[in-house]
Design a protein around this nucleic acid. Structure first.
Length: 834
RNA sequence: GCCUGGGUGGCGGAAUUGGCAUACGCGCAUGGCUUAGGACCAUGUUCCGAAAGGAUUGAGAGUUCGAAUCUCUCCCCAGGCACCA
């Protein structure tokens, strides 16, 4: 064979690997372990796409590398198969999701095998398998028993197209994460997981994740959104209840000239009969409800609000009576749903005060503002108690006590207090605690993270294993009755009323209470798709266990995951959720690692060559199956890596692939023409360069710089087309994780019987990896004037002696005085002229 | 608006972290092989210039013997968050 026939060869070795089971991870191995994880795919009808190839190839290459390094590597795969597409397909075509899913799994599995992935198929899991979701339900029950799952009625995100509630994390830019439909707010009874109880631990844990990329950690940190401040109470005039507010700036309390309640704030209904313009207020709050989140939070939008006439709050610091407003720029979901407004020191309050002519009182001195008010006559300072009152434009003195409505200056920084009674002259940063104490408030930590809306009004998900009993209330299904299996339904169509299609299966819904035996109904909501993936890496360690989620011994043996390849888009979804579940299971003593993933390696997205997302409607999809048909898996894998750095967005471009194909053909030709018969052993004359190659490939692999590995291979082969056979064998071993089929075939052609993937990774000798000669850079005043071949380790004197005789350099040095000479060993010599 | 990345030939990208900018690949050009080729092989290919030489890493400044790399100002692109008090 003088040409590499990828179809025959790749199929042949895929069968061989499967038969020999060389990629199965052994629980009883004496070798040190490594756990390589890739995000398991959703088996869609379209099959796997280029986007899957990127992390899977990286994980595969890495697994192969670690196996050759002598580790027992666990590289498992499974199916995240609950979810909407299968269900929507069922609605349309009346095919049970179980059936279509099985078909899609079959196809995706064929694809993964054709890519030459070294997965351990004996550990395959499927989230829709009752033997799997039994344990998803079991974990839910543990959360429930720990008080971390609760039912509540509240305003939640609702996707009108998918007809289900959504978690906060599933709303991207105000739209449904799955289908892109603008999300609405709906008042619904929902199950929540109290992820907020783990806010601090999730934040704390990030600090221990030394091998996570900073941007990923930062994004999670921002999502959790910790904010330290104070909770203060403002009394309402002639009323027993007060208004509690959260603020990060208690130091500006003296500047709080009004208050704002969120439109949903319960106080508005409580004091309804004291509000003289209640009609106007209710009209406003009703209007707000109708608006979508997108409309409500649009930045360009001008702020609106209505004053609660007849209501006055009392600023606890100044004892002044201040107006109370309702405005939709205050959100019910954060803090207490009410704020103290300090227009002089908060941008939003400033804007609002300007519009509605509310008083703006400066209480923090802006150190960068000009001290003399007359120097900037347009800026009015409010009720400063300076001895000489500031001047307005006409030069008149201003009234002393009250700030002029709607006029003033905005300054949001820290500084020295003014107009703040006994706190005047103190530093704003230091005075925060004191002022909080002065008005009887408390220090308070707020998080932006919200509890996880955990129920979905859809069919194709794990049933929530709870029962509603008329007498006992909510009762968990006993653990020995798990799993609560999904019943067959006639109609998958979501009802849209906030009830799941399961509610219509009377025979399934009506049960006896496990507690009292009385009449009870099953919970009919299902879990979100994120449930199954929140613990799947644990199941891989012990996938057949029907007594436990996974045996503690095996969990301890394999976890944490050493390296987890996946997408940036899961940073505040799967990655956050699974860390939460793991932390919980850790606290309960079921898992041994506090953090599930030691290292996270994100990949860039694969876009079409037109720079757009690959999509059927655009017609720019490149199907990996077609590329494999034409070029083979090794070429596809290597080209995908060669496109660009693993973390970068890459554009698929059909044109460049021939470069990688040519390289592999060249490897093939080189082998077939140079080494027709088996022999081997020892190092040869190109050994030096080869040591350098081993060093380079090893280092770049460890740093996930796959693209430069490929260049290094190409460069080496270009220079050493006819290397000695022993060297070629080393070259093949280095290339094996990248081109598993080609290298396996050539390895066997060289006479070996074992798989190349079970060979050891080549070691390099540091001394031999160094060049014996190096090219010196000769500069005159920092400009390159010559280069010079010198033996490694040459001294300054040796280099100089050789350099000054160089014609070119002489020309530049003639009649000039050398002020300074810079010598960098094995690199450069620079003559600085006057 | 805020927070992250990033900006290098015609294109994808490389540069041992302050020391030969443009490796490797695509494309293109010329030549070879071929009945033919959009196959393969060889050579060349940052820009200006006939050459000597000069210029060049988004723009501008600075530090340094020396800057793609460090500092400052500005512009642009991608991603995340966004009326979060």
């Amino acid at each position: 064979m003088d040409k590499y026939d990828h179809k025959t060869i790749e199929a042949k070795w895929q069968d061989f690997w499967e038969k020999e089971k060389i990629y199965q991870a052994s629980d009883s191995s004496k070798k040190p372990k490594k756990y390589v994880l890739v995000e398991f795919p959703y088996p869609s009808g379209e099959g796997l796409h280029m986007g899957h190839l990127r992390p899977y190839t990286a994980g595969d290459t890495f697994s192969r590398y670690w196996r050759m390094k002598g580790f027992e590597v666990l590289y498992p795969i499974g199916w995240d198969a609950f979810g909407l597409p299968a269900e929507n397909y069922a609605i349309k075509n009346k095919v049970h999701p179980r059936v279509s899913t099985a078909k899609n799994v079959e196809n995706a599995k064929r694809q993964l095998k054709s890519w030459g992935m070294s997965f351990d198929w004996s550990r395959e899991v499927n989230t829709t398998d009752p033997g799997y979701y039994k344990w998803t339900q079991w974990i839910f029950l543990q959360l429930f028993k720990a008080g971390l799952a609760y039912e509540a009625t509240g305003l939640i995100n609702w996707c009108p197209k998918d007809k289900t509630g959504l978690a906060n994390e599933e709303v991207i830019d105000g739209k449904c994460e799955r289908c892109g439909t603008p999300v609405e707010k709906k008042e619904l009874r929902q199950w929540y997981l109290k992820i907020t109880a783990y806010a601090e631990k999730l934040l704390e844990g990030l600090k221990s994740l030394k091998e996570w990329p900073e941007p990923v950690k930062l994004q999670q940190e921002n999502w959790i959104g910790k904010n330290e401040g104070a909770e203060l109470e403002f009394r309402i005039r002639n009323y027993e209840l007060g208004i509690r507010v959260f603020t990060t700036r208690p130091d500006t309390l003296f500047g709080a000239t009004y208050m704002v309640l969120a439109p949903e704030h319960p106080l508005i209904t409580d004091i309804k009969n004291q509000i003289s313009n209640i009609k106007e207020v209710e009209e406003y709050t009703e209007n707000t409800k109708k608006k979508s989140d997108i409309q409500r939070t649009a930045v360009e939008k001008e702020k609106t609000g209505v004053e609660l006439k007849g209501i006055k709050a009392i600023n606890p610091a100044t004892k002044e009576e201040i107006p109370v407003w309702v405005a939709d720029y205050v959100l019910m979901g954060y803090g207490t749903g009410a704020i103290m407004a300090v227009p002089a020191h908060d941008e939003r309050d400033f804007e609002f005060a300007k519009k509605y002519r509310l008083p703006i009182r400066t209480v923090i001195n802006n150190p960068s503002a000009l001290p003399n008010a007359s120097a900037s006559p347009l800026i009015l300072r409010g009720d400063e108690t300076a001895e000489e009152p500031p001047l307005n434009i006409r030069g008149d003195s201003l009234p002393h006590s009250l700030p002029r409505a709607g006029e003033g200056e905005l300054y949001t920084g820290e500084g020295v207090l003014m107009n703040s009674g006994k706190f005047d002259g103190m530093d704003s940063e230091q005075v925060k605690a004191e002022i909080t104490k002065f008005v009887g408030g408390q220090k308070k930590t707020q998080y932006k993270l919200r509890d996880w809306v955990f129920s979905r009004q859809r069919y194709w998900g794990e049933p929530i294993p709870l029962v509603h009993c008329e007498k006992c209330g909510i009762v968990p299904v006993p653990e020995d009755e798990l799993p609560v299996t999904l019943p067959e339904v006639k109609d998958y169509e979501p009802t849209g009323t906030g009830e799941s299609p399961l509610a219509a299966i009377v025979s399934w819904v009506n049960v006896k209470c496990p507690n009292c035996g009385g009449k009870a109904k099953r919970e009919t909501n299902t879990m979100p798709q994120w449930a199954g993936s929140s613990w799947y890496w644990l199941r891989y360690t012990d996938p057949q266990n029907d007594k436990e989620m996974a045996s503690k011994k095996l969990v301890k043996q394999w976890t944490p995951v050493d390296v987890y390849f996946g997408g940036m888009e899961h940073t505040t979804l799967h990655l956050l959720y699974s860390r939460f579940w793991n932390l919980f299971l850790y606290d309960q003593g079921y898992v041994t690692a506090q953090e599930p993933y030691t290292k996270r390696v994100p990949h860039g997205i694969v876009l079409a060559s037109d720079g757009e997302k690959m999509s059927k409607s655009r017609g720019n999809v490149v199907n990996p199956d077609d590329v494999i048909e034409k070029f083979g898996a090794d070429t596809l894998r290597m080209y995908e890596m060669f496109l660009g750095p693993h973390g970068d967005t890459v554009f698929w471009n059909d044109k460049g692939i021939v470069g990688v194909k040519r390289f592999l053909d060249k490897v093939w030709r080189s082998a077939v023409s140079n080494y027709p018969s088996p022999s081997g052993g020892g190092w040869s004359k190109v050994g030096r360069g080869l040591h350098a190659l081993i060093k380079k490939i090893t280092a770049d692999l460890e740093a996930f710089k796959f693209n430069t590995c490929i260049s290094a291979f190409m460069e080496f082969l270009n220079k050493n087309e006819n290397m000695a056979q022993a060297d070629f064998e080393v070259f093949l071993r280095l290339l094996a994780p990248f081109a598993p089929h080609t290298t396996e075939e050539l390895w066997h052609q060289l006479g070996y019987r074992d798989s190349i993937h079970q060979q050891l990774w080549p070691e390099f000798n540091e001394k031999l990896a160094q060049d014996t000669k190096i090219t010196f850079v000769v500069q005159v005043s920092g400009k390159l004037r010559a280069t010079l071949e010198m033996p490694t380790g040459s001294s300054q004197a040796e280099v100089k002696a050789k350099v000054v005789s160089d014609k070119n350099v002489k020309k530049y040095l003639a009649d000039k005085e050398v002020v300074k000479e810079i010598f960098v060993p094995d690199k450069l010599i620079n003559f600085v002229l006057r």
